[in-house]
């Protein structure tokens, strides 16, 4: 089925609103579901292309995606509508949840549960990295870069201001030699 882009700025806003509204446990799967499967605004390959760009850009991936796609469809109003639609409901909910939590934080049981959720959330990052990393696992240079970035930032806690430029230079050099 050929994708049909949204017809109005309002549609863009509502589409991204529905992504934000339901994005428990991560925004990306919901973005794919709404943009490709439910609304058919984008072909799957096109979605992947835009996602790749947004992962390489700094900042929250799906918020960047809202800006890039909104711009493609309706220029500045589209970008603003996508971004605000995505952020509006999650912003309200996270503050409401935090306010509720403040009343309960003294309870050791509540603290224990929330700590457990936080650690499991950290685990989701690791699981996602595993999924993303599998295609690179057969390239020793890529594995070495992954490991070096983890050790520098995660274990040694060196500032990204130092690590990022060094890592990019190293990675570009490896990519030119087709090591990664």
């Amino acid at each position: 089925m050929t994708p049909t882009p949204p017809r109005s700025v309002r549609e863009v806003f509502l589409g991204f609103l529905s992504i934000g509204a339901r994005s428990f446990g991560g925004v990306l799967p919901w973005a794919h579901r709404v943009l490709v499967e439910e609304r058919n605004w984008l072909a799957r390959a096109d979605f992947l292309d835009v996602l790749a760009l947004c992962q390489f850009l700094p900042g929250p991936n799906i918020a960047n995606m809202a800006v890039v796609l909104g711009r493609r469809w309706f220029g500045l109003p589209g970008a603003a509508a996508g971004f605000l639609g995505l952020m509006a409901l999650p912003f309200v909910w996270v503050l409401a949840l935090a306010a509720l939590y403040a009343d309960w934080a003294a309870q050791p049981g509540v603290r224990a549960v929330v700590s457990g959720i936080g650690i499991a959330g950290g685990g989701l990052f690791l699981g996602t990295a595993l999924k993303l990393g599998v295609p690179l696992a057969r390239k020793p240079a890529a594995v070495a870069i992954i490991a070096a970035c983890f050790v520098a930032v995660g274990l040694l806690r060196i500032s990204l201001l130092v690590v990022l430029p060094a890592a990019v230079v190293l990675a570009l050099a490896s990519a030119r030699r087709r090591w990664v």
């Binding site: 790749a52 936080g118 990052f125 996602t128 990295a129 983890f150 930032v153 995660g154 274990l155 990664v180």
Partner: peptide
């Protein structure tokens, strides 16, 4: 550029998960 940045960003995601956990 896209190819080069892949392992870098995966390494950072692992570090992020480790710090949070």
């Amino acid at each position: 550029v896209q190819r080069a940045l892949q392992p870098v960003s995966i390494g950072f995601v692992i570090a992020g998960g480790y710090v949070i956990a």
